[in-house]
Simulated assay, not measured.
Amino acid sequence: MPISQEKFGITDDGEEVIRYTLTNGNNLEVRIINYGGIITNIFAPDKNGKRADIVLGFNSFDGYKVKHPYFGALIGRYGNRIAGGRFSIDGTEYSLARNNNGNALHGGLKGFDKRVWTASVEGDKLVLQLDSPDGEEGYPGNLICYVTYQLTPDNRLTITYFALTDKPTIVNMTNHSYFNLNGHDSGTIDDHVLRVKASHFTPVNETLIPKGKIEPVDGTAFDLQSDTLLGDRIKQVPGNIGFDHNFCLEKPGQIKHVARLYHPDSGRCMNMYSSEPGVQVYTGAHMPDIIGKGGVKYRKFASVCLEAQHYPNSPNQENFPPVVLRPGGTYTQSTSYEFSVVK
């Protein structure tokens, strides 16, 4: 189906923000803006054919211009946390902005989520491009990034990432959509059922930096290998913070089934596939009360993020999958969210 577009706003620097609408003829609709590559809306039918918007966000660009919890955004150069905002490549140390409890988070003060990307439409694909200069936010190398969004006839929203560099650097890109399959305005995710195909996870310290260990989930609150009611399990996670943890996936580099999120009452189901070695499961415990679409007040545990990624703090952990991109190499990542209805 053709991709339509409309003006959505303008930045303080005078750059135009465009919203693109992807449809596939199956009553599924995805809206994306070129500011931060943000997914602003996903409209999906329930078991009775009634559509609801199943991602958190804002009605207008004004909400996205100010600080918010990365609703729907492309994250880069490095998604998640880097301890102390420091890392080394080939003996050279680099320093990043420390914007989260003394650590670097989601690309810094002005990461890829706060940049206007160059957009083009190629058939049923929305293609975004961003050039990140050497030294931006402390990261080395001129990085050229391409991200494509495609809504397929089989109800998959596929996000594909590519990046090239002229100097050794680190790259770890992801999408930060907040899902509530009962509708963004329906309250908590207590009645959602989640399954994650991960037998191991990375335990974290008090600032959510992995301790460097990869441990089995068996016998812990982090065992999501079978269908798990989130309302029950969230309460079992130590510290009353719910999930904000990296789960280790098999077959890094290969597309595989990662997770299944299901809402029994509506029948909406979302299966996730990815090439990445990890997925961050985040249930929104750190979200402040914030007014979103339709004047709805979003609170903690109102949504769940499933962020395909490399492990947090990988640049400082030799036993984690490597994240260094060198000249002549290509960073690639592919993640799909497949929507269906269980009647």
Rank of each mutant, 00 (worst) to 15 (best):
V323H: 01
S186M: 11
M173G: 04
L128N: 05
A97V: 08
F339I: 05
R299D: 08
I234K: 12
T330M: 06
Y311D: 07
G183K: 04
A285R: 15
L126G: 04
W117M: 05
Y149I: 13
T11A: 00
G72M: 08
L164D: 01
F43Y: 15
H192C: 10
N319Y: 11
T40Q: 08
H184P: 13
R299E: 13
D13H: 04
V121H: 03
E206Y: 12
K211M: 15
N246F: 11
D166Y: 02
L128V: 03
N180G: 08
K7S: 04
V30W: 10
N80Q: 14
F201R: 15
D191T: 15
G183R: 04
V171T: 09
C269Q: 09
E6P: 00
S275F: 05
I39S: 11
L157W: 14
A163R: 03
K110A: 01
A259V: 09
Q5L: 04
P210C: 14
H310I: 09
T23D: 10
E215C: 12
G9I: 07
A83L: 13
N271H: 12
D232N: 15
T158R: 15
T188C: 10
Y35C: 03
A285W: 14
Y273K: 02
H257V: 09
I38T: 11
G328D: 01
R233G: 09
K293L: 07
P277F: 08
L249E: 12
V127C: 03
F43G: 05
G63S: 03
T158M: 15
F87H: 03
G278D: 07
I189V: 14
E318I: 11
D134I: 06
F87R: 04
T23N: 06
T330F: 02
L164Y: 13
T188E: 06
K235H: 14
N271C: 13
T220H: 15
G107P: 06
G37R: 03
I159A: 01
I291V: 14
F162R: 10
T220Q: 14
G25V: 02
S274R: 08
L143E: 01
G49Y: 00
